[in-house]
Amino acid sequence: MDERRARTPVPVVASAVASAVASAVASVGRVPLAPGDHLCALYRGRAEREQLLTPFIADGLREGHSCLLLAADGEGRALRDVLAANAPAVGPDSDGLQIMGPKESYLLDGTFDGDHMLDMLHAWSDSTFSAGNGTFARLAADMSWAQPLVQPAFIHDLIRYEMKATRWFMSCPQVGMCLYDLELFSGDLIIPLVKAHPKVWLSGMVVENPYCAGPEEELDPREEVLEPRAADEV
């Protein structure tokens, strides 16, 4: 991982709702998002996922934003069709939308490596923002692929990745939404996820977490308090 990128100081996200509204560049379920926001959306079932995902990406395409959709395995084509139907002016082959499955992103080497994934995200943002034309970016990630992998060590790696992703989101004019299905994931993942995200969307509400575990904690090798404990440790 690029050390320069990892050490770039960024402010802790603790913005009030009012300021978020004022600087809103996107929304999820009518809840405004500000540049740099990293939202954890806890939804139930496929229908609710599409209610969140479709307008988020379709609105971005209409606004001329660069959109990256990290879809669940085998759903890329279907999601592209749905988006084309919801944003017909953009079309299914729009340059503004890039869809990748887990095998092209999170599980590129067959296993999950958060640092490799972050390198990929940095490369994507370098490419997106290189023109310096003031473009804005949106990222949505359906995390359903992670369900079969859930165990303490994986949770540890995933939470560490999410914390670093928060730093990455804050480094560019972009917003991101990670989507976790409550019908697939249990408390062992949900609790650390909530602690690691500055904003959580649940049942139409966004709950802000000013005390989320920020990148600073994640970067201090002596601090492990935020890391989830493995079952065999307890």
Binding site: G187, I190, P192, L202, R229
Partner: peptide, 30 residues
């Protein structure tokens, strides 16, 4: 805060078995 969010999830219409499953799987995380 995470317990607060967990409480919201527990109260989103689940049945008794789901609620207890959520509580049991959260114990090791807190």
């Amino acid at each position: 805060y995470s317990l607060f969010v967990l409480s919201m999830i527990m109260n989103d219409g689940r049945d008794e078995s789901d609620i207890l499953r959520l509580a049991l799987t959260s114990v090791a995380a807190v």
